[in-house]
Simulated scan of single mutants.
Amino acid sequence: MIRKTIAASAVAIAALVSGCSVGSTTAAPASSAPSASSAAMPKSEPVSLDIPSIDAHSSLVPLGLNPDNSVQVPPVSTPLQAGWYENGPTPGEVGPAVVLGHVDGNKHKGIFYRLKEMKPGDDVDIARRDGSTAHFEVTKVDQVPKDVFPSDAVYGDTSDPQLRLITCGGAFDRAEHSYVDNIIVYAHLVNGSH
Rank of each mutant, 00 (worst) to 15 (best):
V47C: 05
T139G: 06
V73R: 03
P161A: 10
S44E: 00
A15W: 11
S31V: 04
A97G: 10
Q72C: 05
N106T: 05
E45A: 12
A36E: 08
Y179F: 13
L165S: 03
E45G: 02
A175Q: 13
V141C: 11
K119H: 08
A134Q: 09
S37W: 04
T167C: 11
L115M: 13
S21D: 03
D55N: 14
D152H: 13
G131I: 09
C20D: 15
L49S: 14
S37E: 13
P120C: 11
H177C: 01
A7H: 02
V98Y: 09
T78C: 00
E45F: 03
I183G: 04
A40G: 09
S9R: 15
S48F: 08
A40Y: 05
A153D: 15
P150Q: 00
V17E: 12
H188P: 01
E137L: 03
S44F: 00
A30S: 13
I184S: 06
D125Y: 07
D157P: 03
E176T: 08
V144C: 01
L65F: 15
L63N: 04
I51K: 05
A82T: 11
A82S: 14
S77F: 07
N66D: 00
S59D: 11
K119P: 01
E117D: 12
I54G: 03
R129L: 00
F136L: 01
I13R: 14
T133V: 15
A153L: 04
L115I: 10
I184G: 03
P89W: 08
H194T: 07
L65Y: 08
V103G: 15
D55K: 13
S9L: 07
L115C: 05
S70C: 00
A8I: 07
A187H: 04
S21M: 11
R128Y: 02
A36I: 00
T139D: 11
S53Y: 03
A127Y: 09
F172S: 06
A134D: 04
D157Q: 12
S58P: 08
V76G: 13
A187W: 03
A82L: 04
